[in-house]
Design a protein around this nucleic acid. Structure first.
Lengths: 131, 131
DNA sequence: GTAATTGCAAATCCTTTGCAACCAC
DNA sequence: GTGGTTGCAAAGGATTTGCAATTAC
């Protein structure tokens, strides 16, 4: 894998983020340093990183895919209203043995949990958006 | 919520499915009975069902959203290669208390786990697709 | 009768792809 | 030098929206 300016900036921007940015978020964030970088390069680069297990794509029900450079095992809190995604460590779950059914299903490479609900700021707001 | 033919067929088709179909899958499945139903009605109807907590949208990293009419708490096994999604009961995880961090985050309404990997048929195939 | 729902078409959002120029190795 | 990578533009897939006609209540 070649080291290009674009890849370096994209990786640095993602690693510095705590908010699980989308490809477009990252594109915006690196434009100051690399004004000519294109959005499709960001997409391609994130794909490449994912294949090399440098980043993770976070599954979402709505809107653009979100990315995460923290590769230690962890989970997510997802807000149904503002779509904020926050990391969560939950060792009690990590420690639970895989259920017997999973062997029959196939070969599990990783598990992750999403806690779904309303973040504290959205809890205060009156009209929760739908999932 | 009005009961229309379209809604009834969509709900029946989803409830009869074990494979977590996409909107387009469902559209195809009900066309035999309702030849004029449109895909956008399927989307709108699934949205409506979701707001009434009759169905769940399953978060995916790639491809169209998938739906699930089983509303009892359960989890999913997701194949990285063929994108098959299978239900999984895992009471050991359901029993784990929410971590202390989650209270600070906000109000958690539900939790779900994805076991990610290769299903048994894809495990036998040689070249796993990327996430 | 009335407001919600539908089908159609078009628009929008997000992501991917073909291709020629470019750059890291 | 060469093959992988980029930027551009255009295409593609998934989903949403405006609107007039229709339907459940």
């Amino acid at each position: 894998m070649k080291l290009t300016h674009q890849r370096l900036e994209i990786y640095k921007a993602l690693a510095a983020s705590l908010d699980h940015p989308s490809a477009e978020d990252l594109h915006r964030r690196i434009r100051g340093r690399l004004p000519t970088v294109s959005l499709d390069t960001v997409y391609r680069t994130l794909d490449t990183f994912e294949q090399h297990t440098l980043v993770n794509k976070v599954p979402v029900v709505k809107g653009p895919a979100r990315y995460d450079a923290g590769m230690h095992p962890h989970h997510h809190c997802v807000c149904a209203r503002c779509r904020k995604i926050e990391d969560l460590d939950w060792q009690a779950v990590d420690a639970v043995e895989l259920p017997s059914g999973s062997q029959e299903w196939g070969h599990v490479t990783n598990r992750f949990v999403q806690l779904y609900g309303l973040c504290s700021s959205c809890s205060k707001a009156e009209q929760p958006a739908t999932v």
